[in-house]
């Protein structure tokens, strides 16, 4: 049983390693955010879940931490994506479509006509 918990913790740390490699390899801010959010969320959840198996008496604080990470991580990445879009950080050359730009342009024209 203890071995299982330790192995789950090890898997979590490997997922965190994937997050940092992705952060180094991806070409622009938005793709880095994608890797950063997903891999760190699962990495932290797995690490804390492994500790929950190792130490079942600590369930209260560990479950609180898991829920906390699961709720706040997507929010912070969304806020950062919005901020980097509005201060016009450029996309990578491989980007194929940008619907938000088209939509905000249409909205601006509508506003000016009023």
């Amino acid at each position: 049983m203890e071995l299982l918990g330790a192995i789950v913790t090890l898997m979590g740390s490997l997922v965190l390693l994937v997050a940092s490699i992705g952060l180094l390899r991806m070409p622009d801010v938005y793709n880095r955010l994608q890797v950063g959010t997903k891999a760190t969320t699962l990495g932290t959840i797995l690490t804390l879940f492994g500790l929950l198996i190792l130490m079942p008496g600590w369930w209260g604080k560990l479950i609180l931490l898991i829920f906390f990470v699961m709720m706040t991580n997507p929010v912070s990445s969304h806020v950062l994506a919005r901020a980097s879009y509005f201060i016009k950080i450029p996309f990578t050359d491989r980007t194929v479509v940008d619907k938000l730009k088209v939509s905000s342009k249409a909205q601006k024209i509508e506003y000016e006509e009023k």
């Binding site: 994937v18 992705g22 991806m26 793709n31 959840i45 990578t92 194929v96 479509v97 940008d98 939509s103």
Partner: peptide, 26 residues
């Protein structure tokens, strides 16, 4: 879905060719 998305991200990050085709959709 969270586990699936992580396998997907891992596959993309560790692939030498970096198979991404990003864009913003509505």
């Amino acid at each position: 879905d969270l586990i699936k998305s992580n396998l997907d991200v891992t596959r993309r990050v560790l692939n030498p060719a970096l198979p991404i085709k990003p864009g913003i959709v509505e």
